[in-house]
Design a protein around this nucleic acid. Structure first.
Lengths: 127, 127, 127, 127
DNA sequence: GTGGTCTAGACCACA
DNA sequence: GTGGTCTAGACCACA
């Protein structure tokens, strides 16, 4: 069997509690941020992806709307969806992640952990 | 009007995306872990808390069920709900938090962050 | 026939080229900005409004999602949709309108109109 | 390579929400109203413009139909499209623009703005 | 009862 | 072919 060009593995996890459209959003965000999908590259069409994943086109629609809202793609009616500029997005994502780490840090302090405990924990992670 | 004993401010945030019962679970977990609610102390009754928070008793019921499932409280039929032993719980929570930090760490690596970036970020947090 | 309480006339115009959900969004934005719907007041439920307007609940859903995205309402799962704080919204709308007037102004200059022409035109409008 | 005569920069913005044919109509309307394209001058052929803009000839066709409908150009079968008389068009456009300003004005009044607010706003624009 | 998600499928404008 | 809107209706979690 041939590996079709542009087949970048979106795999759905039906055991995941999150809605399907959210999983799709998440997968594409990573593909875009990692540069696997590049600026102005065309996204798979709503219909073709729906067929490929064996789900309803409306669900893809919803995912793409969310991706557009978050600035990851832009839509050209009658033409398709395309990857947006993503330089700033990477920075935004890193900032967001730091915010989430700060929330975790505050939670940890509520549980009596010190900053040193956190750094030790981090050091213990695989490189 | 009297200030009732055991009034420890559970404040709901309706603008929070999380379900209400989850917020209640979270609040009580902290109250218990921080020792504000102590071993074998009685929890407010489902009904009284429902009135106090102006929400459906089913919601409190669901929160208490979840707290019991996670080992934070125990139920005595006909008597009420009581705070469980919480020595191990604190450790469990810390472990859980470390797991969540590990997930964050892996996400960050996907975005090109290094371990050093994380440690720098942590160092920047208020003591 | 009785005028039911809370019946605030959302009338759809099927001849309008804009999609129905957009019309609904627009109507509610005005009701909120004008203070007819007040902070924390409950919006009609997705289903009841769908029945009242004789359209599909999904369409209301979409309208409410958009209103939430724009900060006009907030959603509490299982409880309903509620009007958000709207102090800032009024200012934002006015700013947006000024921007649109600026675009119009630039268009007019392309057509050879002067600032005085514009002011004269404005003066001619009913008070 | 030669610089072809009649190359007057139609630039499409794919991120613009409006359909492409509408953008083309708009661009040509301005070129005609400003006199860059003059009475009886020949418009670029549907095919050549389609090639130049790398879009579907149907789209150009649709734009030209719309321009003809609005009286900006006329078609001679077998010969091509030509710029129409445009004296009246300029006035029509100005009238249309005043109408749009009136709509804006009414919207502003709904938001509590007065005529004086509008005039102040206008005065603030660059000359 | 309330909103959230999803399906199956229709019809439309635009390219 | 491509996305956008809408319907009719199902099933779910939450209150």
């Amino acid at each position: 069997m041939q590996q079709k060009e542009g087949e970048y593995m979106i795999i759905l996890d039906y055991k995941d509690a999150r809605p399907i459209y959210e999983q799709i959003v998440e997968k594409f965000k990573l593909l875009i941020l990692k540069g696997i999908l590049q600026k102005d590259e065309q996204m798979p069409s709503v219909r073709s992806l729906a067929v490929e994943l064996a789900i309803n086109p409306n669900t893809i629609q919803k995912a793409y709307m969310e991706l557009e809202r978050q600035g990851y793609i832009y839509t050209v009616k009658g033409r398709g969806n395309f990857v947006a500029e993503n330089e700033n997005l990477l920075d935004e994502r890193r900032e967001e992640l730091k915010m989430r780490m700060f929330i975790l840090y505050k939670e940890g302090k509520e549980l009596g952990m010190t900053k040193a405990d956190f750094i030790d924990c981090l050091r213990g992670f695989e490189e």
